[in-house]
């Protein structure tokens, strides 16, 4: 073994050690105020549920986990697959996925638009995106309701112009939920997209265009692969929180359909079944975590292929 190799190895080790120090503050904060306490939830998931919420400490039971997947029919006592939980999971995933796609379709051009403004104007446009979000979520949701309710801005405008003669019921529909979610999560898509688009060298695109690539080709083959990290970040930031969202679905959708967030909240609240709530949330976390890892791997592969 040569000395040079030793030095390189030592430098690599030092680099990795430094990297651990550098990430320590974030890791410690998250451990203390997010992950650490979650061990409580893991414990709770295998304890006996308390009569009125909470758990009976140090009495263990697998009931919480059993109820995630199976249910005992309350009428004939047969055990079957918990299809209620599955259909709620499916509805939440569907909604989160559509929200992600919609925010991507709207957010990409917006981020692109901001990134192509003159340099000193960009931060200004960025601020303009976030300003509505200085307003509290609940107030914002009520404001959306003012626009879309039967007597709201949109319906009144449409009726005045004679386009419709009956108000369109938008409030309390799935469409309203989608509108609200898109609204609420748009900046979570735009900001990361912008962060990776902003440093994109648009001369590359111009060069490609000079070589007779049409604009959709330029977009697909050059711009999109280059901003893939931003798309990944934005999609995660939109998809994951919207899976557990519950204020917007309740206020705009009318709360007639449970989402995952509401289902879990029900167990910790009125349902008084903390072990089931814990087990459900651990399952959800595991699913999200796994799909996230798969997604990130796949995305970085695409990136490698194009890059």
């Amino acid at each position: 073994m040569t000395q040079a190799q030793d030095i390189i190895r030592a430098a690599a080790r030092r680099d990795i050690r430094n990297r651990w120090w550098l990430s320590a503050p974030a890791l410690v904060i998250i451990f203390l105020a997010a992950i650490g306490p979650l061990f409580v939830v893991v414990l709770y998931s295998v304890m006996v549920k308390g009569d009125y919420g909470d758990v009976k400490y140090w009495q263990f039971s697998g009931q919480g986990w059993f109820e995630v997947l199976f249910e005992r029919d309350m009428f004939d006592n047969t055990v079957s697959f918990a299809d209620a939980h599955l259909s709620i999971l499916w509805r939440s995933v569907k909604l989160a996925a559509i929200t992600t796609i919609v925010t991507l379709i709207l957010g990409f051009p917006t981020a692109y638009f901001i990134a192509t403004r003159p340099r000193h104007r960009r931060d200004l446009w960025l601020f303009l995106i976030t300003i509505p979000f200085w307003t509290n979520l609940l107030i914002r949701t009520f404001a959306i309701q003012e626009v879309f309710r039967n007597e709201g801005l949109l319906n009144v405008a449409l009726m005045r112009t004679g386009l419709i003669d009956q108000p369109i019921q938008i409030m309390f529909t799935d469409f309203a939920i989608l509108l609200g979610m898109g609204y609420v999560y748009l900046p979570l898509m735009v900001l990361p997209l912008y962060a990776s688009l902003e440093k994109f060298d648009f001369r590359l695109a111009e060069a490609a265009a000079d070589l007779y690539a049409n604009s959709s080709r330029v977009l697909r083959r050059i711009i999109v692969p280059m901003v893939m990290p931003g798309i990944v970040a934005g999609s995660i930031l939109v998809f994951v929180p919207s899976l557990g969202a519950y204020v917007t679905p309740r206020l705009l959708g009318g709360g007639k359909n449970l989402m995952l967030g509401n289902l879990i909240e029900l167990q910790f609240g009125q349902g008084r079944n903390w072990p089931l709530g814990s087990a459900l949330s651990i399952s959800l976390t595991a699913i999200v975590m796994l799909s996230l890892l798969v997604y990130v791997r796949a995305a970085s592969k695409t990136e490698a292929r194009h890059g």
Binding site: D83, H85, N262, L266, Q267, G271
Partner: peptide, 11 residues
Amino acid sequence: LYTKIWTDLLK
């Protein structure tokens, strides 16, 4: 029992 009926209702 109530929670089950409730979940069934809102699923």
